Measured scan of single mutants.
Amino acid sequence: MIVFVRFNSSHGFPVEVDSDTSIFQLKEVVAKRQGVPADQLRVIFAGKELRNDWTVQNCDLDQQSIVHIVQRPWRKGQEMNATGGDDPRNAAGGCEREPQSLTRVDLSSSVLPGDSVGLAVILHTDSRKDSPPAGSPAGRSIYNSFYVYCKGPCQRVQPGKLRVQCSTCRQATLTLTQGPSCWDDVLIPNRMSGECQSPHCPGTSAEFFFKCGAHPTSDKETSVALHLIATNSRNITCITCTDVRSPVLVFQCNSRHVICLDCFHLYCVTRLNDRQFVHDPQLGYSLPCVAGCPNSLIKELHHFRILGEEQYNRYQQYGAEECVLQMGGVLCPRPGCGAGLLPEPDQRKVTCEGGNGLGCGFAFCRECKEAYHEGECSAVFEASGTTTQAYRVDERAAEQARWEAASKETIKKTTKPCPRCHVPVEKNGGCMHMKCPQPQCRLEWCWNCGCEWNRVCMGDHWFDV
């Protein structure tokens, strides 16, 4: 396979590697080409510095992935760790964990309700045991953590790749202090920090972006993250068709209702045909949960890209028209025109101005929308079919299609509260000796007794199943 190397943020060049090629071997190839010592090179990928003893497969490097290699003399205490030698983080029983690669970060837990604080980093599902597709590297999971809308060759929703760059020099040479644990960490600028490894760059702020994971991409090709779309790892039924499908869209209502993408497309087109989208002054033209839940309008309007190009163009047109109407304007009634106009409040005669090729020149009556006339309008008909009709959803289907309910059931079956801080902690095999993952707590306690870890627990039921 081919990976592209950008040395000291210059133009990239291809390097041929195998899945079992080590990072140090990659350094040696680059060092020979650039005429520099291999031990002064640092390989940066997806916000993480890659260790010498890791392989291309370990690092989730795919065909035509772009890695950054910078030349920086080692500072005291760094060289041993980078070589894969006596790194205290690798000691058996050590409590410190390697910062998780962005290629394996899962933010789907952050669609849980606000009262489930902490689960994004504490609760991990076991539903990723799908067998890898044919042709994928051994052991590589097909679980997708992110979804994007690819405006490039795909023109559809695709699995996405999370990447990070330095907000100062805009190069992907920043190593994160810690990985993101929720969508806010990724979507809110300057929320996460790190250290830029580019020479002479003092940058410390992280800037995240997404790429389409279905095809090789260049540095400049980015895609918009659709953070309401998630892999259906909890096997929730769709609120409309009641099938279990994946991926799904999880509405931001209190129940976190789930809808499959085909039904979401149908829901949007139906509402669009009836012009029953909601115009929100802050958000724009949007839709609420299909069950009509309060405070559930979709905030990231790129989710409506699921409509496809033709329907999305209609959505944008109707949204612009609705904006004009909300501002007190009118639409030209001549067939084939429909231009938005903003006449004076007491102006009865409205002319669709033909300047700049935008208007048709038609003069019409503001009251009856017919060709302009003197005197009273002959008839004014009330528009028919403008009443909002509820999208029919079966109550039982709505009850079963809740992301929140599956989460709470998982928590109930696989977790116990920490005796000190009461945060839910998952036990997935292993011994009875637990350690609270909350940095402010870190209590060592017994899963069996529910009390602080002691010699009695150690001698009596340390390794009970």
Rank of each mutant, 00 (worst) to 15 (best):
N190T: 07
N58I: 05
T351M: 07
Q252G: 12
R72Q: 15
W403Y: 06
L342D: 05
M327G: 09
C436R: 01
G160A: 15
C457G: 02
W54S: 09
F45N: 06
C352A: 02
E452L: 15
E79F: 11
G85E: 12
G203M: 02
C377H: 04
T125N: 13
C352T: 02
K416S: 07
Q64Y: 13
R334S: 08
N58D: 15
C268M: 05
S384M: 10
K151A: 14
T387P: 13
C95R: 13
E382D: 12
R72I: 14
D126S: 07
Y315R: 01
R348L: 08
L266P: 03
F277K: 00
W453R: 01
C365E: 03
C449A: 02
N190L: 07
Q64F: 14
P424F: 08
D60Y: 04
Q400L: 13
L112M: 14
N254W: 06
A406R: 13
T414D: 11
W183I: 00
N428M: 15
S296A: 03
D106H: 09
F24S: 11
I236K: 09
L342V: 10
D243P: 01
N58Y: 10
C212V: 02
W403S: 03
T168M: 09
F210W: 07
C169P: 01
Q100N: 13
N428V: 15
C431A: 15
C332R: 03
G179I: 03
I66H: 08
G203H: 02
P417C: 11
G385A: 10
E207T: 07
T388N: 13
S167H: 07
F251Q: 03
T351A: 07
L266A: 12
K412H: 11
E452R: 15
L119S: 15
S110Q: 12
D130E: 11
C421F: 01
K32P: 00
L123I: 08
L358F: 13
W74Q: 13
H265T: 07
V186C: 06
P153K: 10
S65M: 04
M1L: 08
T242A: 15
N273K: 03
R275T: 01
F13N: 02
W445A: 02
F209G: 07
R314G: 00
S141V: 09
P132Y: 10
E382N: 14
I23C: 02
L61I: 13
V350M: 08
A214H: 07
R51T: 04
Q400I: 14
V15T: 02
L342E: 06
S378Y: 15
I66E: 05
N58H: 12
T177W: 08
A46I: 02
A291H: 06
Y391C: 05
F13I: 07
K129C: 10
E382G: 10
S181E: 12
F4L: 10
C289Y: 02
N273I: 04
F251I: 01
V5K: 02
F210M: 06
Y312T: 03
Q171T: 08
A172Y: 08
V36W: 02
F251N: 03
G284V: 02
R392G: 09
V330D: 04
P73T: 09
G328L: 03
M434L: 06
Q155F: 07
K27S: 02
Y312L: 04
R170H: 15
